[in-house]
C-alpha cells in the first residue's frame, strides 16, 4: 500500500534524479565562461524564487520587496568580510539569521495587510532598505559600492573557480528544494495551502494563521539572504542599485512565468527568463539592430500572455499529461480534480 503522502503528492525522487542528472551533465556540454556565469546566476536566483514560490504560491501572500532581503544578505556578508575580516561562512550565517529576524519583525506588522496594500508595503520595505544601503556609506561604501569581497573556499577547494562554484551553488539549490518540498509535504504545507485558499476558513479551524504567514515570509527572506551572500561572494562587488525594486519585479516575473504553485515552476521560470533575456538581446542586436532594453517589452508581452493563457505558468503546460490515481480511483467533482492537479508540482 502506498503511503498517504505519496498518494497526495506523488513521488519526488524522479524529479530529483532528473535535476541532479541535468546539473551533472551541463558542465560536460558547456565550456564557455559566459554560459557558466548565467547558470550560476540562475542557481542563485532560483534560491530566491523558490522562497517566493513558497510565499506567493503556497501561503498566498505577495512580496515585491524581496530584493531588499537579498541586499541585506549580500551586504552583511560583504561588510563583515571586507571591513571586519570575518570568515565568509560565519558572515553568511549571521546574514541569514539577521535577515530572518528582521523579516520576522517586519512580517508581523506588514502581513496584517492584504492584497494590493501588502504589495505596496513590501515595495516600501525595498525602498527603505535601498536608502539605508546608500545612506550608511561608512559601512556599505554607499552608492560607490563595496569592493573586494573575497571568494569562498570550502575545505581547501577554491570556489572562485567557476566550475566549482557552479556545483556548489546548485548543491545548495538542491538542499533548498529538498527542504522546501519537505515543508510543503508536511502539515505546515497543508496549512499554508489552506491559508492560500481561505484565510478566514483556516482561522475558524483554530489555526494561528499569522504565525504561519510570518514564519514563511521570514523563511523566504532567509533564502533571499543566502542568495545575496552567494551573489556577493561570486561577483566580488555589490552596489545598492542591484537590490532595487526592479530586481524584485524581475524575481516576481520569474516566479509567475514558471508557475507559482510549484517549486519546480520557480526553477523553470528563472531559467527561462534568464536565457530568454540573453536570446532576445542577441536576436535584437544581431538581426534587427535594436539596441537597448528590448527584453522589457518582451517581458511585458510574456506576462500578459502567461496570465491569459497559462495562469499556472510553464509548469502548468507540463502538467497536461496528468492522470491522477486519486482522481481515477475515487469519483470527484471537477474542482477537486483541479486542486489535486495543482498539488502535483510539489
Amino acid at each position: 500500500m502506498e503511503k498517504v503522502e505519496t498518494i497526495l503528492y506523488g513521488r519526488r525522487w524522479k524529479s530529483f534524479l532528473g535535476f541532479i542528472a541535468l546539473i551533472l551533465i551541463l558542465p560536460l556540454v558547456v565550456s564557455s565562461q559566459y554560459v557558466f556565469t548565467l547558470l550560476i546566476l540562475i542557481g542563485i536566483y532560483c534560491i530566491i524564487t523558490i522562497g517566493l514560490s513558497l510565499l506567493i504560491g503556497y501561503a498566498g501572500q505577495i512580496s515585491i520587496g524581496h530584493a531588499a532581503f537579498v541586499g541585506i544578505g549580500a551586504y552583511v556578508s560583504g561588510v563583515l568580510t571586507v571591513k571586519y575580516s570575518v570568515s565568509p561562512w560565519v558572515a553568511m550565517g549571521i546574514g541569514m539569521v539577521a535577515t530572518f529576524i528582521i523579516a520576522y519583525l517586519i512580517g508581523m506588522q506588514v502581513l496584517k495587510l492584504k492584497g494590493h496594500i501588502l504589495a505596496l508595503a513590501t515595495i516600501a520595505i525595498n525602498i527603505i532598505v535601498y536608502i539605508l544601503l546608500v545612506g550608511l556609506s561608512d559601512y556599505t561604501g554607499g552608492a560607490g559600492g563595496l569592493v573586494g569581497i573575497p571568494n569562498l573556499s570550502l575545505l581547501g577547494l577554491d570556489l572562485g573557480n567557476q566550475v566549482n562554484f557552479y556545483f556548489f551553488v546548485w548543491s545548495i539549490v538542491f538542499v533548498v528544494i529538498l527542504f522546501s518540498t519537505n515543508i510543503i509535504r508536511s502539515s505546515v504545507g497543508r496549512i499554508l495551502r489552506s491559508i492560500h485558499d481561505s484565510e478566514i476558513g483556516t482561522e475558524t479551524l483554530g489555526v494561528n494563521v499569522t504565525k504561519f504567514k510570518v514564519a514563511i515570509f521570514a523563511l523566504s527572506a532567509m533564502y533571499a539572504s543566502l542568495a545575496g551572500s552567494l551573489y556577493a561572494h561570486y561577483i566580488n562587488f555589490i552596489a545598492p542599485p542591484t537590490f532595487y525594486i526592479s530586481f524584485s519585479i524581475l524575481l516576481l516575473v520569474m516566479v509567475m512565468v514558471g508557475g507559482v504553485h510549484s517549486i519546480w515552476g520557480a526553477i523553470i521560470g528563472t531559467a527561462s527568463i534568464m536565457f530568454l533575456n540573453e536570446v532576445i538581446r542577441f536576436v535584437g542586436h544581431t538581426y534587427f539592430n535594436i539596441n537597448g532594453e528590448v527584453e522589457i517589452v518582451v517581458y511585458g508581452l510574456i506576462i500578459i500572455l502567461v496570465m491569459i493563457f497559462i495562469p499556472k505558468g510553464l509548469v502548468g503546460i507540463l502538467d497536461v499529461r496528468k492522470i491522477s490515481p486519486v482522481k481515477s480511483s475515487i469519483k470527484k467533482d471537477v474542482t477537486i480534480k483541479k486542486n489535486v492537479a495543482s498539488e502535483k508540482g510539489v
Binding site: 532528473g18 556540454v29 523553470i268 507540463l318
Partner: peptide, 24 residues
C-alpha cells in the same frame, strides 16, 4: 502515476535543454 512523472520529467528536461542549447 509513474507515466505521469516520467512524462513530466522528460518535458522539463527537454525544455531546459532547449533553452540551454539555445543559449549555447
Amino acid at each position: 502515476m509513474k507515466k505521469f512523472f516520467i512524462g513530466k520529467l522528460v518535458a522539463i528536461l527537454s525544455f531546459v535543454f532547449l533553452l540551454v542549447v539555445a543559449g549555447c
